[in-house]
């Protein structure tokens, strides 16, 4: 007989953890793109372009797992409209409610930036609107989108922290912080991969991105350590079998420590293209395994 029986929600990791990861990466990339747009040199626009091309397409994947995990998927719209009375509903105490609304805001901003870049790259054109093209408030929605993006990256962690499950409760208030930092790091990795694919991964811009990512990954390690200390005995699942491989090897060693070491070394020496490509993939995989581990460790 276990004295305290706080039930797990049994959220399916292949829906919810993947959502956490995809949304976090999209938000991280969008934020980096905006910062580069606002504060970068303005001569090179590769990073912010890549960010816009990553953020929105990733977001289009998001509704699928979110809706699929519901017990009554056909009612997903109840998140926005109170079905008994027909008015819009927002519950400020519920990260799930606020998150749904902010996800809408973020999606709109990411879509606008995406279209904007398609037009700038002459892939599509809107003849009707071309006269107004220079008057579009693109900085405004980039900033709104970045703030919304931060929210999207972080609220998933806050959502776990404000439950009564022992591991999620014990790691309060650090989960949101960790997810934001991880989102920034995987976002940067996604941008870098995109630039490698477009063969544009050189120049001052890319170096600035790397410098940013080094700081972020150090912060991620520190936060992760603090989180584990706070979790104490509630983190017991993390030292059982699937997690030893997934969390300690996948996230900590190959997802953060090895890529970070690689990044610090690669300032001095030059590696070939393949190891560079691989270390970005490791960062992404590490971010995904981080979400799966922290979700499942709270549900066991």
């Amino acid at each position: 007989m276990s004295p305290e029986i706080i039930q797990a929600p049994e959220w399916a990791w292949y829906y919810i953890a993947i959502y956490f990861f995809v949304a976090g990466t999209s938000a991280g990339a969008y934020f980096i793109g905006t910062m580069e747009e606002l504060f970068g040199s303005g001569r090179e626009r590769e990073v912010s372009r890549a960010a816009c091309y990553i953020a929105f397409p990733l977001l289009t994947l998001v509704p699928i797992p979110l809706i699929a995990d519901l017990g009554r998927p056909e009612r997903f719209w109840h998140l926005f409209v109170y079905n008994q009375a027909g008015y819009p509903y927002l519950n400020l105490q519920s990260p799930m409610s606020v998150g749904s609304w902010v996800l809408l805001v973020f999606s709109v901003c990411a879509l606008l930036s995406f279209l904007d870049n398609l037009v700038a790259d002459k892939i599509i054109s809107f003849p009707l609107f071309s006269r107004y093209y220079n008057r579009i408030p693109r900085k405004l929605y980039a900033v709104i989108g970045s703030l919304a993006g931060f929210f999207i990256a972080g609220y998933t962690g806050v959502l776990l922290n404000v439950t009564a499950r022992p591991f999620w409760a014990a790691t309060s208030p650090l989960m949101g912080a960790l997810f934001i930092v991880s989102g920034a790091s995987t976002g940067a990795a996604a941008i870098s991969l995109f630039l490698i694919w477009r063969k544009r991964n050189s120049g001052g811009e890319v170096e600035r991105l790397e410098a940013f990512d080094r700081v972020v990954m150090v912060a991620e390690l520190v936060l992760l350590a603090a989180l584990l200390v706070m979790a104490g005995r509630t983190a017991a699942p993390l030292v059982s079998l699937p997690f030893i491989v997934m969390f300690w090897m996948g996230t900590v060693v190959f997802g953060i420590v090895v890529p970070l070491w690689f990044k610090i070394r690669s300032r001095a020496e030059r590696f070939g293209a393949n190891p560079v490509l691989a270390h970005y993939l490791f960062i992404l995989l590490g971010g995904l395994l981080l979400r799966i581990s922290l979700l499942q460790a709270g549900q066991l």
Partner: peptide, 25 residues
């Protein structure tokens, strides 16, 4: 508390981005 810590972290990341993108510039 969770929201505050998360917002502070977001500000920290913002500052890190600002510094790295500016300095490098």
């Amino acid at each position: 508390l969770c929201s505050l810590v998360t917002i502070l972290t977001a500000l920290g990341i913002g500052a890190a981005a600002l510094v790295s993108f500016r300095e490098r510039l």
